[in-house]
Design a protein around this nucleic acid. Structure first.
Length: 699
DNA sequence: CATTTGTAGAAAT
DNA sequence: TCTACAAATG
């Protein structure tokens, strides 16, 4: 599927366990153990279906499993890397240095690590939600405007993350509030103590350890072929002083691990069980045999009962819709309606014949990717969702229901008059998180937003929060619609984007997330985070600051977006799918792009899938002034997928650029803090606990 | 009373 | 992962 959209995947697998995460790992392991026990009990009781259900909950991806997948990746020439420790850090490193243009993952921790562009909730159709740091300022609920990566990171840590449990009674909101008051963790702790809460004596110590883990975790540099820190040390401390980030691994060993030849945990060579599986329906398995390599068991063998067919095996044109059929369904386009997406992968349909061909194109990446993506749990999505929705709170009342997102989307659609759209679509719209959202709504929204932002900058927070949102609401719906699509870009070019995924080797993560490569440029730097407790030094290496030149709009996001236009485009597009006719051509055009040629259907995605956009970026980016960072050009242009080829309507470059730009920092106004932007935060993070951003955020 | 956090249960993958 | 509900708090 990724290939279909012209995205080159770059898979990233988890490596060894991180000391900082020991507690989390332990609890997860225990859960798996408990589930396994439960499953066996069901089995004994003769309740196989329930047993199977429980068995699924105790699955742990092993390095051997990851290795089996790696064998296939090699055959398909798909880039991959096994991280020395967490894939999260590795992914962000790759994105930061231009090896990939974005990251596909459901793990919200990536935002805390500093991911610039995160695509979550990718589904089989290529629909996903894009979270850009630069959009964070659009987050409702909180006003992340002006927040640096450091602040986000700290907010996330204080509310509870994988590396450290949150403070009692402190969730995202509270953490946000506290950080607004003082950036100093020390003072926050004192403040809490004042309020009578008891904070562990070593909380600060642990807090800084968690922060340093997010900042300086070891990652494998594909260029240097050795371990480096996600964010380089600033000289105030050495790796030896941070045992919690895990021991350093010598280059030679690190290379073997990165290649997948050595078990990242045991450091012993991985020996794949040559188990020919019978069920390889996938050619991949077959291929393996051919190669003669010890093929490991086909990844499929690990998952029994899978009815799913890998996207890879799907016909490349499976997304296209039959114009005639479409016409029938829509009564010549007069009846707006949501179309069910074509589902060629469902057994039955076409796969066989073409399967082969198509598969080549798409196959590799796709298959894994989709699944991989989901692996983690993630709060992220919620965040995102929330973000997107955030604005939406519809009406006055302050908070819309949490679910708002999808619903909202739907609403939007309705508003438009379109019929409801499929949730996918809507979702898409929603996608974009924040920033743009504003676009559509823009005007209303804008104004509101701007107010909010302004307010946010002001001293306090809370009151503010409540106020503004309400109004928006009304507008809301519109916004959402618009927003999402950032712009479809035209994409003709191929894409260079790549994605990576990581797979988790062992436990926890199962899979990984892919990131997209190509890069966007902008990213800016790593944040300036200043981890250290005592001193904060911004380390930012790069600076984010370099924004693109154009930004005309950027300044005020809000402002710039002329509501109208965009709306039309986006909003509809999103829905677009629905009425082919009605929706307007715009959308349709977009569409086509997305889906293969056929025009119609593809509903939603057509608009602009984040994936498409990415690729667009990737393409464009180059032109624009981007950052110096070395991005290798990662993007390869490989596979121009059909969709990609389709010419999209153009979008305004200006707009696009604005969006892309470096985050914008500039856009926003942020007074104080550093500028980094980032965000990420939200909270989400924490695995253990999740935060439901959704709640907060948007309403 | 309104806002938050934390947890339990339910649904979807 | 999402929703619902309960407890805590100001």
């Amino acid at each position: 599927m990724l290939k279909h959209f012209g995205v080159t995947p770059y898979m990233v697998f988890d490596g060894d366990f991180l000391p900082s995460k020991a507690a989390t790992e332990a609890s997860r392991a225990k859960k798996r153990e408990d589930k396994l026990r439960l499953a066996n009990e069901y089995l004994k009781a003769g309740k196989s279906s329930q047993a199977a259900q429980e068995f699924q909950k105790c699955i742990d991806i092993t390095p051997e499993m990851a290795s089996a997948l790696i064998q296939q990746l090699r055959k398909m020439d798909i880039p991959y890397v096994v991280a020395p420790y967490e894939a999260d850090a590795q992914l962000v490193y790759l994105e930061r240095h231009g090896f990939v243009d974005g990251i596909i993952s459901d793990d919200s921790d990536l935002l805390v690590f500093g991911a610039k562009r995160l695509l979550t909730k990718l589904d089989q159709y290529g629909n996903c939600i894009e979270i850009n740091r630069r959009d964070f300022c659009a987050c409702r609920e909180i006003s992340l405007t002006g927040w640096s990566d450091t602040e986000f990171r700290r907010m996330a840590i204080m509310s509870g993350c994988d590396y450290l449990n949150g403070l009692p009674g402190v969730g995202l909101k509270t953490a946000y509030r506290l950080l607004r008051k003082t950036k100093s963790p020390e003072r926050i702790v004192r403040l809490l103590q004042f309020e009578g809460k008891r904070v562990s004596e070593n909380y600060l110590t642990l807090f800084y350890q968690a922060e340093l883990t997010f900042l300086h975790q070891w990652v494998f540099c594909p260029t240097k072929k050795e371990l480096v820190h996600l964010t380089e040390l600033d000289g105030t401390r050495t790796a030896e002083e941070m045992p919690f980030i895990g021991p350093h691994v010598e280059p030679e060993m690190a290379r073997k691990i990165a290649n997948g030849d050595v078990n990242p945990i045991t450091k012993l060579p991985i020996i794949l069980p040559a188990t020919p599986s019978k069920r390889r329906h996938s050619q991949s398995a077959a291929a393996a045999d051919a190669s003669g390599r010890p093929l490991s068991k086909p990844i499929n063998s690990y998952f029994k009962a899978h009815n799913r067919i890998p996207m890879a095996e799907m016909d490349a044109n499976c997304f296209s819709v039959d114009p005639q059929r479409l016409s029938q369904i829509t009564a010549e386009g007069t009846v707006p309606r949501v179309f069910p997406l074509p589902r060629p992968y469902i057994p039955g349909s076409q796969q066989s014949a073409d399967g082969t061909n198509s598969r080549q194109l798409t196959q590799p990446a796709p298959r894994t990717s989709p699944r991989l993506n989901r692996r983690r749990t993630e709060p992220i999505s919620s965040l995102l969702a929330s973000v997107s929705n955030s604005r939406p709170p519809r009406d006055a009342s302050n908070r819309p229901p949490k679910k708002a997102r999808l619903c909202d989307d739907a609403f939007d659609a309705d508003v438009d008059g379109l019929p409801k759209t499929s949730r996918f679509f809507s979702a898409e719209k929603a996608l974009r998180k924040s920033p743009r959202k504003a676009n559509s709504d823009v005007y209303l929204m804008l104004s509101d937003d701007s107010l909010d932002e302004a307010l946010s900058n002001l001293p306090d927070i809370e009151g503010w929060a409540s106020g503004p949102p309400k109004r928006r609401v009304s507008i809301f719906s519109d916004k959402q619609k618009d927003v999402p699509p950032s712009q479809p870009e035209s994409i003709s070019q191929q894409d260079s984007v790549q994605t990576d995924t990581k797979q988790p080797s062992r436990s926890q993560k199962g899979i990984s997330q892919p990131s997209i490569t190509s890069q966007e440029t902008g990213l800016t730097s790593p944040d300036a985070s200043q981890p250290e407790p005592p001193n904060e030094t911004p380390e930012s290496s790069v600076d984010a600051s370099t924004p693109l030149p154009e930004l005309p709009d950027s300044t005020s996001q809000v402002a710039r977006t002329p509501p109208r236009t965009r709306l039309s485009r986006f909003s509809y597009s999103s829905k677009s799918s629905e009425t082919p006719a009605s929706t307007t051509s715009q959308s349709s055009s977009v569409f086509s792009a997305a889906s293969a040629a056929s025009s119609a259907p593809s509903t939603a995605r057509s608009r602009q899938t984040p994936l498409q956009r990415m690729r667009a970026w990737a393409l464009k980016t180059p032109a624009s002034p981007t950052m110096p960072v070395s991005r290798k050009d990662a993007g390869s242009a490989k596979g121009p997928a059909e969709p990609a080829l389709v010419p999209l309507p153009e979008v305004d470059l200006n707009e696009m650029e604005a969006l892309n730009k470096p985050c914008g920092s500039e856009d926003q106004i942020i007074p104080d803090s550093d500028e980094e932007e980032e965000e990420g935060e939200e909270e989400a993070k924490l695995p253990t606990k999740k935060l439901n951003l959704a709640r907060f955020v948007y309403s």
